[in-house]
């Protein structure tokens, strides 16, 4: 079964990097440009993992995680926030919203794949 990942980032270069890396690693990746976009897509399709940036226009990452957690199909879905080290309180805020964990930027493709593999199991 292919693992489906929803990658959400308003930065095109980060989104491309994440999507490209994970596709290379054999995952099925769908991209979304902000929280609102991701929420729309997530309601139509299903995913095994959600990777999202924190700071985004039109619904930020924390709002997205909270909204997704409230949806039955995403009750237990792993959701990782891509955050920066400068914002430790964001991690807590994200956890409170229901995020599974986080990946600290900057990260390289290898770290990304390793983390995703761990979470997917």
């Amino acid at each position: 079964m292919t693992v489906r990942i929803l990658a959400v980032d308003d930065s095109a270069s980060m989104r491309q990097m994440v999507a490209f890396t994970l596709k290379q690693a054999g995952f099925d990746v769908t991209e979304a440009v902000d929280g609102a976009d991701a929420l729309k897509i997530a309601q139509k399709e299903s995913f095994n993992l959600v990777l999202c940036d924190v700071n985004m226009p039109n619904l930020d990452g924390i709002g997205l995680v909270r909204a997704l957690r409230a949806l039955a199909p995403y009750k237990f879905t792993p959701m990782l926030m891509l955050t920066t080290e400068s914002a430790p309180e964001k991690k807590q805020e994200g956890k409170a919203a229901g995020a599974t964990g986080w990946l600290v930027k900057p990260f390289n493709p290898e770290q990304l794949i390793a983390t995703v593999r761990h979470v997917i199991g």
Partner: peptide, 26 residues
């Protein structure tokens, strides 16, 4: 849908209201 799983949220999140103003990014 068990009573909204992740709703016990810290109040600090309230100040930021997402989705307002047409951002050029969209």
């Amino acid at each position: 849908a068990a009573p909204a799983a992740g709703t016990n949220v810290t109040p600090m999140a309230v100040a930021r209201k997402p989705g307002e103003g047409a951002d050029a990014k969209s």
